[in-house]
Structure formats: C-alpha cells, structure tokens
Amino acid sequence: MSKRRITRKAVVATGVAAVLLPLTAVATAQAAGTQHGAATHTRSAAAAPTASGTPDSALTRINDFYGAYIDAGSEEGGGKLATELRKFYLTKGLQKKLAKWEDKNHADGVLRAQSIPSKWSVTSDGSGAGHTWATVKLTWGGGVVTKIHVQADLATKKISDIK
C-alpha cells in the first residue's frame, strides 16, 4: 500500500472515530443512567427561554404592562414610573375605577395587593366583541399564587378592566 493511501485511510478513520466515540460514550452513559448521560440528555431536550410579542396584540400589551409595572414597583423610587405606565397602558375610565378601589382597599389596584410579586405570567382567555381577556397569574413569596382577570380593548390595546 502506498504511503498516501495509508494517510487518507488514517484521516478518514480518525474522523469517523471523532464522531462516533463521543456518541457512543453518551449513549452508554445514558443507558447506564449515569449523571453525565442524564445531564447530556436534559441539556439537549431543554429549550432556551424565549419571549416574543407584537405591538398589534392586546395580549402582548397586557404582558408588557405587568412586566414593566412589577419591575417599576421593585425599584426604589419606581412610583413615578408606575404612574406613567398606568397613564400609557390603562384607559382613563379604568384609572378612575382603580383610584376608588385603592382608596377603599388600601392596596394597589393593578396587583390587588400591598406588595410586589416575584413572578407573573399572562394567559389568553380569548377575544370577541372588541375586547381580549387574559388571566394574569402572580406568584408571591412562599409560592402563593393569585389570579387577576384583565380586559383590553382591541382597537386601542389599552387595558380597560381589572378584576
């Protein structure tokens, strides 16, 4: 055999081994149930967190509002920003309604609480008759969860009711 032919075969064999050996090691580890195999499997199955939206969606606006409002409440001096967020995202009628609710209940009407949650999520409850509805799930310290029902106008994308 020529030296050139041996070299080509060695390169091909090395390339095949470089691909197959790690795959074989992972498959063997997974079959054996070792930590390495489990971790490799979990990493490949888990998707990276994503967030998306569109300014044309009332549901996106609800999510954006709650995210920004909770962030503002978490920051020292965030009261002014929270007020500006209310002016931008909420209808004037809802702002008046919340002011009455807050006077009566001595709590934040947007969150229906006196403190700031650690997490939130927004789930669509459907749309129709010019509105979209969503459930906002707030998670508090200790894992306590509350739900708020929010309505937004499809034409203006502004939040028009919170219950």
Rank of each mutant, 00 (worst) to 15 (best):
S127H: 02
A45R: 09
G78A: 01
P55C: 09
G53E: 03
N63E: 03
H149I: 11
A129K: 14
A48F: 03
G141P: 11
E76K: 00
G130M: 07
A82K: 12
P49D: 13
T40C: 03
T123E: 10
D108N: 14
T24M: 09
I70N: 01
P49F: 10
I116R: 00
G15V: 14
A47I: 02
L85V: 01
T135C: 05
K92S: 10
D125L: 13
L21V: 14
Q35S: 11
G33S: 10
R43W: 04
K96Q: 09
A107M: 15
V150G: 06
Q114G: 15
I62Y: 00
S121G: 07
L59K: 03
H36G: 04
G141A: 15
A51Y: 01
A25C: 04
A48Y: 10
Y89R: 09
T24H: 13
N105G: 09
W120A: 05
V110H: 02
K80R: 14
H131T: 03
G15A: 13
T91R: 11
K80Q: 14
D56G: 12
P55R: 02
A99K: 03
A38Q: 11
H41Q: 15
L23Q: 07
I62M: 03
T34V: 02
L111K: 01
S124K: 04
P49W: 15
R43L: 03
G109K: 06
D108K: 11
S44Y: 08
A68I: 01
T40M: 06
S52Y: 12
S44E: 13
T135E: 03
K97H: 12
A51C: 15
A17P: 04
P49T: 14
R43V: 11
Q114R: 14
S118N: 01
E102K: 01
R112A: 11
I116Q: 00
D64C: 09
V145H: 03
A68N: 05
E102F: 05
W140F: 10
T135L: 12
N105K: 15
P22E: 08
V26S: 02
V144E: 10
S115N: 08
D56T: 14
T123F: 06
K119A: 13
V150W: 05
G141M: 12
S74K: 07
G53F: 05
T14Q: 09
T91G: 11
G143C: 12
F88K: 11
A51E: 05
G143V: 07
G73K: 00
P55T: 04
L59M: 06
E84H: 07
T50Y: 03
G130Y: 01
A13P: 12
W140S: 10
R86M: 08
A129S: 06
H36N: 08
W133L: 15
L21M: 11
T146M: 04
T60V: 07
G79Y: 00
A99W: 05
I70T: 00
E75D: 07
G53N: 08
S118E: 07
Q151N: 15
A58I: 06
A45Y: 04
T146H: 14
F88I: 07
S115Y: 13
P117R: 06
S118R: 09
W101P: 04
I62H: 01
A46V: 08
T14K: 14
H131W: 02
V26W: 07
A32Q: 10
A82T: 10
G109D: 08
T139Y: 09
H36T: 12
A113R: 02
L90K: 02
W120G: 06
A27R: 03
A13F: 14
I70P: 00
G109F: 05
A27W: 06
